[in-house]
């Protein structure tokens, strides 16, 4: 098993862990990488902040069905 990983892999794991999709082993590798890589530490910090920022708001999106209804109404009106 390889303990040392490259930056792109580290970023990939970091992305996955924002969605809780990184395995424990991946997270260990990421953290070891972060010990010595300043660049990835920055990326990870920014990435975590983005996750936290988005979680702190209550963004509500319209579901596809609702959008379809809106679109149909608008298209009908455009044809007139």
């Amino acid at each position: 098993m390889k303990l040392k990983i490259k930056c792109n892999e580290s970023n990939h794991i970091c992305d996955k862990s924002q969605y809780k999709e990184a395995s424990l082993w991946e997270k260990i590798k990421l953290n070891i990488h972060l010990l010595y890589c300043d660049f990835c530490r920055k990326y990870t910090a920014n990435n975590q902040r983005l996750t936290k920022t988005i979680k702190s708001t209550t963004i509500k999106t319209l579901c596809e069905e609702d959008k379809k209804v809106l679109k149909e109404k608008l298209l009908q009106e455009m044809k007139k």
């Binding site: 963004i59 509500k60 999106t61 319209l62 609702d66 959008k67 809106l70 608008l74 298209l75 455009m78």
Partner: peptide, 17 residues
Amino acid sequence: PETWVDRYSDYLYNYTI
């Protein structure tokens, strides 16, 4: 107008809700 729903409906919805 044909792009309005895709581009702005979420924005307008959050503003409205």
